[in-house]
Design a protein around this nucleic acid. Structure first.
Lengths: 150, 150
DNA sequence: CTTTAACGATTTAATATTAAAATATTACAC
DNA sequence: GTGTAATATTTTAATATTAAATCGTTAAAG
């Protein structure tokens, strides 16, 4: 979809890049979402499990930063994972404001089963690009993600 | 954030590209969202106004495709825009299943005021990349967005 | 014609998300 | 120590989003 906007070259290029970026991310996440639906997990929930799996136990606010969600939402996401029995909360004894979130054994098993499937889906989705293009894309996106908020 | 995942090269590259893509899109849309907040519009609502502004009156399902949202959601998004008096619905007389959505004069004025500001924000956000890099990014994202659902 | 299938929109229920206010805890200045 | 500010989490209220079921309309097959 082009922008149909008659601005300066700079503006047209920026708008086009923004739109394509948004649509690509939406398209990919919709498909990832779809395959997670089969095991009744949201992308947020999966993000938490994945972070704990690869990084070990984390504080709730650290998890929020990892998956770019607000604090109030983290409470709910983790509530739902606790209900499901895949993570548990542990109040930090040194600083009782913190809560550390752990994977339970069931959670460990779940993410261990799930992750390889997730990898397959991602590889397939990104397969529209060559490996070199994927690396280029990652580098470009990294610059955007890192740049400071306005 | 790296993936910490010891898979094949192909898998690592795909995962990294996927994560960077998601985070870049999240980061940018969060900032866009923030500036739309000032005028009390969601990204979905703005997307509808923008589509109508640049493409003219559209059917409700066409709008849904443009902004990648489900039908049930479109009903609500448009309801809220109607309440605000910036769009109006018109039942298609030829095929009464269709509803055509128009900008009202107030809506026309709103998007006309808003769009230049939106452009400035997008230009600023994408400014982390050179113009050439933005074009590269758009081309790469386009391939992903276009590829068929799995 | 009548029936069936397809389609667009709406409703409904469940969940997700955010922002803001409230609560609990810690750290620090005095 | 006490009070104040800062921090982590929770709660709350308002919206957004999705999926599924439903209703009305159209098109097409018999």
């Amino acid at each position: 979809m082009s922008t149909h906007y008659q601005g300066t070259e700079t503006e047209r290029v920026a708008l086009d890049a923004y739109i394509k970026l948004s649509r690509a991310a939406d398209a990919v996440s919709a498909r990832i979402n779809h395959h997670l639906k089969e095991v009744n997990l949201t992308i947020s929930q999966f993000g938490v499990l994945e972070a704990l799996y690869h990084l070990g136990p984390l504080h709730q606010n650290e998890l929020g930063e990892k998956i770019l969600k607000t604090g109030g939402n983290m409470t709910l996401v983790i509530d739902n994972l606790v209900k499901r029995g895949v993570v548990c909360r542990e109040r930090d004894e040194d600083d009782r404001r913190f809560i550390t979130v752990h994977l339970t054994e069931a959670g460990q098993n779940l993410i261990q089963d799930l992750f390889p499937r997730h990898v397959r889906v991602v590889v397939q989705e990104m397969g529209a690009l060559t490996q070199e293009e994927q690396a280029q894309l990652a580098a470009l996106c990294r610059k955007i993600g890192l740049s400071e908020p306005v």
